[in-house]
Amino acid sequence: MKKPLLFLPLFVLLAGCSSSQTWGWYVIDPTTASGWTNVKFLVSGMGATIQISLIAAIMSIVIGLLVALPGLSEKRGWRLVNRIYVEFVRSIPLLPMLFWVFYGLPIVFQSMGMNIPIDPFWGAIITLAISDSAFTAEIYRAGIQSIAKGQSEAAQTIGLNYFQTMRYVILPQAIRRILPPLANQFIYIVKMSAFASVIGMQELTRRANELVVTEYRPLEIYTLLIFEYLVLVLIISAGVRWLERRMGADERG
């Protein structure tokens, strides 16, 4: 069962290389001048995709922690703040949120007397960061709650305050459990950054769309696009595994 499946992509590629009318790999053939120009054009979106994803991921990691902490409070009011944020934000699909931030938010700012334009770059980052932060907040909460209560009690009895307890006792232990799902979220951000193309951000997907319009070779161009994301995600996965080994997150217990 497995072997034919493995040969399937190879078959597709080979079929494409033959000179039938439906295939035209020449469009991204790096050995020809025009093909090479096209490949360079497509891959040049990589920088923007990486920048958007990285900045959004960092913001999401910070916002997520700030949202998670009230969720761990003993006070019901604080927990409610966390619940409302998480339930509200994670129920909004990414695309409508992107439109709202890009087209709507500047109007909100204007009505408050502020003139803050939102360009596609920051529009995409803000949307991805906020949308993802609801999920990172839940990851933090689960990770922190998985650390036995005795740990924070012991920290309190040796005089540590709340933030010292988090910083020196709870988070260093929780991070091993938080890191793997957080890496998952990073991969999710990279893939969702493709939506930035619809507000005109010149990233991988936008580049592919634009080339398709001029070359009219969707299959070949989108196939390359998929491989571009695949390479990105594989690099992230390798990086995360390295990080996990370094922090001992792959060990049990």
Partner: peptide, 17 residues
């Protein structure tokens, strides 16, 4: 209180990291 009263727990609660 915390500075004047120490506590030893049944489960030790040492910091494993």
């Amino acid at each position: 209180i915390r500075s004047e009263v120490g506590m030893v727990f049944q489960q030790f609660n040492l910091f494993p990291h």
